[in-house]
Structures are given as C-alpha cells and as structure tokens.
Write a protein that binds this DNA or RNA. Structure first.
Length: 105
DNA sequence: CTCGTGACGGTAT
DNA sequence: TATACCGCCACGA
C-alpha cells in the first residue's frame, strides 16, 4: 500500500502536464523529487493500471521521440493521441521539445 | 541477500 | 548521425 508512494508522486506530476504539451522522463523525475531517476518514471508508467486518468502519452524521452518501437501498436496509439491533442510530429517522427515541452512554473 | 530487467539520460567513440 | 556503455535504482524472481 504505502510502497506506491513513489508511483503516486510520479502519477500526480504527470497529471499536471497540460494538454498539447509533453514532458521528458527526466523532467518528471526531477519535478517529483527523484532527480536522475528517469528510469523509475518509465517503470512507474509501465506499471500504470489500465483505465487510469494519468496522461502517460505526454511523457516522451529527451530526444523528443516516443519510447516504443515505431512498428508497435502502442507507438501508433501514443502518436495518435498526441496528435489529437495538438502535438505535431516532424517527418522523422520527432516532437520539437523546444515548442511543445511543458513548463511547470 | 543477489541478480536481471528496464516506457531513460549522458558521455564517449 | 549512430552505436555502445555506464550510472541510477525500484521491483520481482
């Protein structure tokens, strides 16, 4: 029960990302008080129960690319959702962090 | 307790 | 630009 505290912190932070914006794993980790633990953010999202209201699709890696193989179903789904929120992808399937990265303050 | 794993990030080559 | 490694550490076997 209590061990989910770390996950909850991550989930709460991800929930704050505004629609049409994205954040990197490292950024979420840092804001959640877990500086340098980007992998734990990915682990937490992987563990995310289906049907939750956490906008997991808004979390991408530092290179502005989705963390799934491009041929995977999950990859296409994440891209689809982000586009519906207004995030545009470049031809090489990357997102401009300069333009879409979420600012927390 | 040890070990492998991973929806990552940075640096080196 | 693309790989290859390594650091980091929660989690489960």
């Amino acid at each position: 029960m209590e061990k989910q505290n770390t996950y909850q912190r991550i989930y709460q932070m991800v929930k704050k990302i505004a629609p049409g914006k994205v954040a990197t794993y490292g950024q979420i980790a840092r804001l959640a008080g877990l500086a340098g633990h980007a992998r734990q953010v990915g682990y937490a999202l992987h563990n995310l129960p289906s049907g939750s209201d956490v906008p997991w699709q808004r979390v991408i890696n530092s290179r502005g690319r989705l963390s799934f193989p491009e041929e995977s179903v999950a990859w296409h789904m994440q891209k689809s959702i982000l586009e519906s929120e207004g995030v545009k992808f470049s031809e090489n399937n990357t997102i401009s962090l300069l333009k879409y990265q979420w600012k927390s303050f």
